[in-house]
Design a protein around this nucleic acid. Structure first.
Lengths: 224, 224
DNA sequence: TTGTCATTCAATCAATAACTTGACTGATTG
DNA sequence: CAATCAGTCAAGTTATTGATTGAATGACAA
C-alpha cells in the first residue's frame, strides 16, 4: 500500500539521482549529439577513461543512453525515452528559479537576450519561404551523424576562412548542440560584427530530433 | 569557458540531486497539495520531525518549496517555479522506460488502463455541458486549501456513508492528489462495484493548479 | 517572566558515491 | 596465436549524504 507508493518514489528518485551529477549531465549532453566512443566522451568531458565508462554505465542502467559495439569500440548514444524532455524541464526550472544559472548564462553568453533566438516553428516557416539560410556550426563529425535538413555545415573553427559561402543578403539562422552550446552564440557574435544578418536557433540538434522532426545525414542537403 | 559550462551542469545537477531522494519527493508531493506544517508533513511521510525539517530545508534551498511562519507553526507549500512540470517530466520518463514503475503502477492500481482516465480538456467540456459531476475524494482539510471549481468533496473514508449525495444517472469524475494518488483509483473501483458510472481524472489537484486553471477554496462551489 | 510548543541547529555515525589504480576481457591485427 | 587496442571490472580511498539524538531558538499563552 504505502509501500508501493514509496517504491514508486524510490524509482523516480533513482532517475533523478543519476542526473544529479554534473559530469554525467555533461556526458549525456555529448551523447545526445550522436554516437560517440567512450574514449571520445572521456576526452570531451575531461574525465578519466574508467570514470567516464562507469558514469556511462550508470546512465545506461536507467536508459538515458544506449550502447552498441562496433569492432573494439563501444559507442554510446542517447536513449529512446523522453530524455531530452526531462533535461528541458530541468533547464527550464533552473532558468526560472536559480539566479546563479541566469547569472552564468547571461555573463557567459554576452547578453543572450539581445541575440533574439528563433523558434523551431519560425525557422520552418522561414526556410519554406526562403527568407533564411540554415547554418550548422558544429564540427564535421557531429554534422555527419545527423543535422537539420538543408543545413550548411561550417564548423565554428572554419568560419573565418569560409565566409564566402555565406550570403550577405539573406538572414542566417545558426544552431549547434543545444541551448547551452556556445558555438552558435559565438558564431552569431562573430558574424554580426562582420555585418551579417544572423540569428540563433533557440534549440539545438538534439531538441530538433527529439521533437520528431526530420533529420538529415551526410549526402542530403549538404552538397558543396 | 569550459568552466562556465560545467558550472551550469553543476547547477542543474544540484537540482536533480535534491529530487534524488524518495523521501524528499514524497514531502514535495504532499506540500504540492497545499500548505502543511512540518509536523503534518512528517506524519504524512512517516519521517522523524528533525529529518523532515531538514529535507524541507533542502527543498526550500532550491525553491521547490517555500515556507512562511504562522504563529509557532512553519507552513510549507510548493514553490512557484515550474516544479510540477519537472516532476511530470520525471514521471513520464519513468513510465516510458522503467518496467519496474509500470509494473508497480499496474499491479497496484488494479488494471489502471481499464479505468480510462478523463483528460483535463475533456473534463472541462463535460462539466460545461452538464454531462458529468466532479468528485474530490481527498480529506476535508486538503479540499479546504484548494480544489477544482464545482467539485463535491466526499473524503474517501466517508464514501460509503454518503452515497446518497452522488447521482446514479450522471457520470462522476473523481480526482485526488495526482497521478499516483490511490484515493481516486479506489473510489472508482468501489463506486463502479456499486453500479455508479464513474471515471478518474487523469491529473490531480496540483497539476490542475499548475496549469493555471481556476481553483476554488472553501465556500465556493461546495455548498451543501 | 516562565513555560510550552513547533521547529531548527549541531554533533555524530553509518551508508553511499565519485574517483583512482591496476588487473581483466573481447575484438581486431600482425 | 600472440600483441594490441578499447573498454570494463574490482578494490580501495576520500568525500558526501541521510538519519538520529539532544540542545537551542522563536513565538505565543498563562
Amino acid at each position: 500500500m504505502t509501500n508501493a507508493k514509496s517504491e514508486i518514489f524510490q524509482q523516480f528518485a533513482e532517475l533523478a539521482r543519476v542526473l544529479g551529477q554534473g559530469n554525467r549531465l555533461e556526458l549525456l549532453e555529448h551523447a545526445a549529439q550522436g554516437e560517440r566512443s567512450v574514449e571520445r566522451l572521456a576526452q570531451l568531458t575531461g574525465l578519466s577513461l574508467a570514470n567516464a565508462s562507469q558514469h556511462l554505465q550508470v546512465l545506461r542502467r536507467v536508459g538515458f543512453v544506449r550502447s552498441r559495439r562496433d569492432g573494439k569500440r563501444m559507442l554510446y548514444r542517447l536513449g529512446d525515452g523522453p530524455v531530452i524532455e526531462l533535461l528541458g524541464a530541468l533547464r527550464r526550472y533552473a532558468e526560472h528559479s536559480r539566479a546563479e544559472v541566469r547569472g552564468i548564462v547571461s555573463d557567459y553568453f554576452n547578453r543572450l537576450d539581445s541575440l533574439e533566438p528563433v523558434s523551431r516553428e519560425a525557422l520552418v516557416k522561414r526556410l519554406d519561404d526562403g527568407s533564411a539560410v540554415l547554418l550548422d556550426v558544429r564540427p564535421e563529425d557531429e554534422f555527419a551523424l545527423g543535422h537539420l535538413p538543408g543545413a550548411l555545415n561550417i564548423p565554428f573553427a572554419d568560419l573565418e576562412r569560409r565566409l564566402a559561402e555565406l550570403p550577405k543578403d539573406t538572414q542566417i539562422v545558426a544552431y549547434c548542440r543545444g541551448p547551452y552550446c556556445v558555438l552558435s552564440f559565438e558564431a552569431v557574435a562573430a558574424l554580426r560584427a562582420k555585418g551579417y544578418d544572423i540569428r540563433r536557433l533557440e534549440d539545438g540538434f538534439p531538441e530538433w530530433k527529439a521533437a520528431g522532426l526530420p533529420v538529415g545525414t551526410v549526402g542530403a542537403g549538404n552538397s558543396p
